Every structure is written in structure tokens, then in C-alpha cells.
Amino acid sequence: MAINVTCPSCLKRFNVADEHAGKTGPCPACKKPITIPKLDEQVVIHAPKPEGPTDSKGRSVLKTVRRSDGAFDPLVATGVAGVALLSLLAAFLLQGDDNAIWWWAGMCVLLGPLVAWAGYGFLRDSEIEPYTGGMLWLRAAAAGAVFALSWYVYYHLAGVLGESDWLTTGLETWQMLVAGGIAVGIATFASFVALDLEPFMAFFHCSLYFVVTVLLRVVMALPVLPGLVTGDAG
């Protein structure tokens, strides 16, 4: 095998046959004498040995676990989209119904986990191992439940800040901002804790839910926000 040699004078690097090991001769570049290292003086760098059990050739027999790239499931996503479309259709059919507000409240509860699951698929941190399967649905259900609860918080705070008949007389802008801000803050915290989203992404995550549920109110001919009186009670 060839011996790697570096001239100490000109730092020229070249290879010589192993039969010249230990001999002295001129450098082919600068002609100054150099001594060829002996075979037992060469530094040999060995590849690190694998940890754990190995086969007869020294190769590791342990299989690495492949990191999951995402939690997106096309079939489930199609189901979520289908439920959302059916909810919009039902909302359209319930226009003018005396119980429309209660139907809307039920849809808010139903859509919470679904929107939480769908939003997590593209708002999660790609550097963190994603939640999948039952664990994902459990956490999405927890976040979705808090999303629905945040609407209750809005109604409760609106009752505290506004008049006793605020649903018909309406709320002032600052009252809706305070009630809405606290409700969104609670929902954002739920996304942050339940699904390990970054605070900014957690805000957008819960915002998806509020956009969907507000859109349902519009389709059902309810006021865009409870307390925003435009003619009909909401």
C-alpha cells in the first residue's frame, strides 16, 4: 500500500510505495532530504465502532426509528372538510329558526376538535416530533373544548360588562374588545399548552376556529358577534 508523505520543508504531499518505508531521499519538489515514515509509524484512523449488537461483519443490527414528517392524514382531512361543509349547509337551512343560536352553540362544540386537528397539521413546529394518532386527537379534543368554552367566557364577560339585556341593546366597542380579547387569549393558551405550538402560531390556530364559527353566524343570519346589534338579536 502507498505511504502518505509530507515534506517538512515545502509541505508538499505525495505518496511513495511501502517498500521505501524508513528510507531517506530527496523531496521531488524542493530536493531537500526527507525520511519516509516506517509502516508502523503511520497514523491509521479507524471508523468508530457501532454501539450495541453487531453482525459478523461488525455492522450494527439495530434499526433506527424513522422520524415522522407530519401528522397530516388526507382521509381525515377530507372528513374534516366534509363536516365543515355540512355545518355551513345546516347553518344556511337554519336561517331564521328560533333555535338558531342553540344550533350554532352545538356546532361550536362539534367543530372545536376538528378545527384544532386540521390547524395543527400546518401550523406545528416542523422541528418537533409531531403528535399523531390517538394522542393527537386527545390533545385536539382538549384544545377544541377550550375553544368552545372561550365563547362561553365571551358571553359571561359581556353580561358582566354590559347591561342585563345586552343581547338586544348591544355592547360598546370596548366591551366587545375586552370580552373578545380575553376569550381569544384563553383559546391561544389552550393551543400553546395542548399542542405545543409557538405562541404566534397558537394565536393563528385558535383564530381559525373563531373565523369558522363567526362565518357560521353570518350564514345563519345572526349578528357577526354577540352584542353587535344590527337589527336582529344574537
Results as ranks from 00 to 15, higher is better:
residue 61 V to L: 11
residue 82 G to N: 12
residue 153 V to H: 07
residue 191 S to V: 03
residue 127 E to I: 04
residue 157 L to T: 09
residue 47 A to S: 11
residue 128 I to C: 04
residue 217 R to M: 15
residue 204 F to R: 06
residue 100 A to V: 14
residue 92 F to P: 01
residue 160 V to C: 05
residue 10 C to T: 01
residue 161 L to S: 11
residue 148 A to Y: 03
residue 12 K to N: 09
residue 48 P to G: 09
residue 16 V to M: 06
residue 168 T to H: 13
residue 144 G to E: 06
residue 220 M to W: 01
residue 26 P to Y: 09
residue 94 L to E: 00
residue 53 P to F: 07
residue 131 Y to F: 10
residue 76 V to L: 13
residue 99 N to W: 14
residue 48 P to A: 10
residue 125 D to Y: 04
residue 131 Y to L: 14
residue 35 T to R: 15
residue 105 A to I: 14
residue 231 G to I: 07
residue 230 T to I: 09
residue 90 A to P: 13
residue 227 G to L: 02
residue 119 G to W: 00
residue 37 P to V: 04
residue 160 V to Q: 08
residue 74 P to V: 05
residue 174 W to D: 13
residue 211 V to D: 03
residue 132 T to F: 09
residue 183 A to L: 02
residue 157 L to A: 05
residue 93 L to D: 13
residue 114 L to M: 07
residue 45 I to N: 10
residue 79 G to E: 05
residue 5 V to C: 13
residue 57 K to I: 02
residue 80 V to M: 11
residue 197 L to R: 00
residue 40 D to R: 10
residue 6 T to C: 07
residue 83 V to A: 12
residue 198 E to D: 10
residue 69 D to A: 09
residue 179 A to P: 12
residue 176 M to L: 07
residue 91 A to P: 15
residue 138 L to Q: 05
residue 183 A to N: 02
residue 204 F to V: 12
residue 57 K to S: 14
residue 197 L to C: 10
residue 40 D to Q: 12
residue 209 Y to S: 03
residue 231 G to Q: 04
residue 19 E to Y: 02
residue 165 D to S: 14
residue 126 S to N: 09
residue 44 V to K: 12
residue 218 V to L: 06
residue 90 A to Q: 07
residue 37 P to K: 04
residue 210 F to H: 14
residue 125 D to S: 06
residue 234 G to F: 02
residue 121 G to Y: 06
residue 66 R to P: 00
residue 202 A to C: 08
residue 82 G to W: 14
residue 193 V to F: 09
residue 2 A to D: 14
residue 46 H to K: 11
residue 47 A to E: 11
residue 191 S to I: 01
residue 125 D to F: 03
residue 133 G to F: 05
residue 155 Y to Q: 11
residue 70 G to W: 05
residue 152 Y to F: 10
residue 57 K to H: 13
residue 201 M to Q: 06
residue 62 L to K: 08
residue 24 T to P: 13
residue 209 Y to C: 00
residue 225 L to F: 15
residue 220 M to F: 00
residue 121 G to H: 13
residue 98 D to F: 00
residue 160 V to W: 12
residue 79 G to Y: 05
residue 112 G to I: 03
residue 233 A to T: 11
residue 99 N to S: 14
residue 62 L to G: 06
residue 69 D to T: 13
residue 176 M to I: 08
residue 56 S to R: 13
residue 184 V to F: 02
residue 18 D to I: 11
residue 176 M to Q: 09
residue 209 Y to G: 00
residue 72 F to P: 01
residue 233 A to F: 06
residue 121 G to F: 09
residue 161 L to Y: 10
residue 137 W to M: 08
residue 132 T to Y: 05
residue 196 D to C: 08
residue 85 L to D: 07
residue 140 A to P: 08
residue 101 I to W: 02
residue 228 L to V: 03
residue 4 N to Q: 13
residue 33 P to V: 04
residue 233 A to V: 14
residue 187 A to E: 04
residue 90 A to S: 15
residue 141 A to F: 06
residue 26 P to N: 15
residue 122 F to S: 09
residue 109 V to I: 14
residue 10 C to K: 00
residue 66 R to S: 03
residue 187 A to G: 06
residue 77 A to R: 11
residue 149 L to F: 14
residue 24 T to W: 02
residue 81 A to Y: 15
residue 119 G to N: 05
residue 69 D to R: 12
residue 63 K to M: 12
residue 120 Y to K: 02
residue 95 Q to E: 15
residue 60 S to N: 08
residue 175 Q to W: 03
residue 49 K to M: 06
residue 87 S to V: 14
residue 137 W to F: 07
